[in-house]
């Protein structure tokens, strides 16, 4: 809120981690099919979702993003056989930690998106943005600003 300037609309920023082989390609597919979704996400590509160190997720919040979406290939489809199983395990632990950090669990989401699921990618982004908008700015935001 700004004094005298009226209410500034909350424009969330959301980090999306994509793996090179499926979900990044799914995001491209959304583009190729011209599926429209809100412009609040910033994609960071890694080779496999298994590369996503939980620290990256925490760091995202520490740096002021309002939500994080972790994506990868569907279970069984990981280009590196089973990297996404490890992602799933790490995600569960992370999700448990969210409350302790003073963050709502709903700011963090995991989705498997294949290279052809452009529509799913767009829909998931829409949902995440909506969810985060409902929650408002991340409580960690003031810490860094």
């Amino acid at each position: 809120m700004q004094a005298g300037g009226g209410v500034k609309e909350f424009v969330p920023k959301i980090v999306v981690f994509c793996c090179n082989w499926c979900s990044y390609a799914g995001a491209d597919m959304a583009g190729v099919s011209r599926m429209q979704y809100p412009p609040n996400i910033r994609i960071i590509k890694v080779m496999c979702s298994g590369r996503i160190d939980p620290i990256f997720v925490l760091m995202s919040f520490m740096e002021g993003t309002d939500g994080v979406l972790v994506t990868g290939c569907h279970i069984g489809d990981c280009h590196y056989i089973n990297g996404n199983y490890k992602t799933q395990n790490r995600f569960e632990i992370l999700s448990e930690m969210m409350n302790e950090l003073g963050l709502e669990k709903e700011r963090l989401r995991l989705e498997w998106i294949s290279a052809t699921e452009g529509e799913k990618f767009a829909n998931v982004v829409k949902e995440v943005v909506e969810q985060v908008k409902k929650l408002g700015p991340s409580p960690l935001k003031p810490v860094i600003e």
């Binding site: 960071i44 298994g50 590369r51 939980p54 620290i55 760091m59 590196y80």
Partner: peptide
């Protein structure tokens, strides 16, 4: 794939071209 790097408890492992500091700089 970098899965081992994400799991390394001491930070001794690093993935070339997807180094921790490189990804952190994006974040």
């Amino acid at each position: 794939c970098g899965t081992c790097v994400a799991a390394c408890p001491t930070g001794a492992l690093e993935q070339r071209h997807y180094q921790n500091k490189q990804i952190a700089s994006q974040i």
